[in-house]
Measured scan of single mutants.
Amino acid sequence: MQIFVKGLTGKTTTLEVEPSDTIENVKAKIQDKTGLPPDQQRLIFAGKQLEDGRTLSDYNIQKESTLHIVWR
């Protein structure tokens, strides 16, 4: 499925993911596209910070959802 990651600059990155992907895995995909290391990424969805060990489905993140990224 496709999801979007929007940064503070307003730039949006598209990712191809599975609902079973962990947040850690998603951060690795973001690094592949942007070069930003996972330890500098904070992902937010529906006002919650996403924890590395959880999956996208744990947070009810579905296709075409938009996550927000904040740099540490």
Rank of each mutant, 00 (worst) to 15 (best):
Q40V: 08
N60M: 08
G7F: 15
T55R: 10
M1D: 02
A28N: 10
G35M: 04
K6M: 15
P19L: 10
Y59P: 00
Q2L: 13
T34G: 04
T22D: 03
K63R: 11
H68Q: 12
T9G: 15
T22C: 03
L8P: 14
V26Y: 00
I30C: 02
K29W: 04
S57R: 10
V17Q: 01
D32I: 14
F4C: 03
N60Y: 06
V26L: 15
T34P: 02
F4R: 05
K33I: 13
K6A: 09
I44M: 14
H68L: 13
H68R: 08
L8C: 08
R54I: 05
L67P: 01
T14I: 15
D52K: 04
E64P: 03
E16H: 13
L67Q: 00
E18L: 15
L56E: 00
K29F: 05
S65E: 08
E51G: 04
T55I: 07
K63T: 13
V5S: 02
L56P: 01
T12G: 06
R72S: 15
Q62D: 09
E16T: 14
K29T: 03
I30H: 03
E51N: 07
Q49V: 13
Q62A: 10
G10D: 10
N25V: 14
G7I: 13
I44G: 03
T22S: 09
G10N: 09
Q62G: 13
F4M: 05
Q41L: 14
F45C: 03
W71A: 14
D32S: 12
L8G: 09
A28P: 00
E18I: 11
V5Q: 01
D39L: 08
Q2H: 13
K63D: 14
V5C: 03
L36A: 05
E64T: 06
T22Y: 08
K29A: 07
V26D: 00
L67N: 01
Q49K: 09
N60W: 04
G47C: 04
V17L: 04
Q31F: 15
H68P: 01
L56Q: 00
K63F: 07
Q31H: 15
R72P: 15
E24F: 11
I30E: 00
Q2F: 11
T55Y: 05
P37L: 09
I23D: 00
T34I: 12
P38C: 05
Q31P: 02
P19C: 05
G7S: 11
Q40P: 02
I23T: 04
E24S: 12
L50A: 01
K63Y: 06
L50V: 03
E24P: 02
I3E: 01
I30G: 01
T12C: 07
F4G: 02
T9S: 13
D32T: 12
W71H: 11
V5A: 04
N25W: 09
G35Q: 04
R72H: 13
D52I: 05
Q31S: 13
D32F: 10
L36H: 08
V17C: 05
G7Q: 09
G53D: 12
N25P: 00
E51Y: 06
L50D: 00
K33H: 10
A46Y: 07
D39P: 07
N60H: 11
G53F: 10
L15N: 01
V17W: 02
D21R: 01
I23C: 02
N25S: 15
E16M: 13
T14P: 09
Q2K: 12
G10P: 07
R42Q: 14
D32M: 12
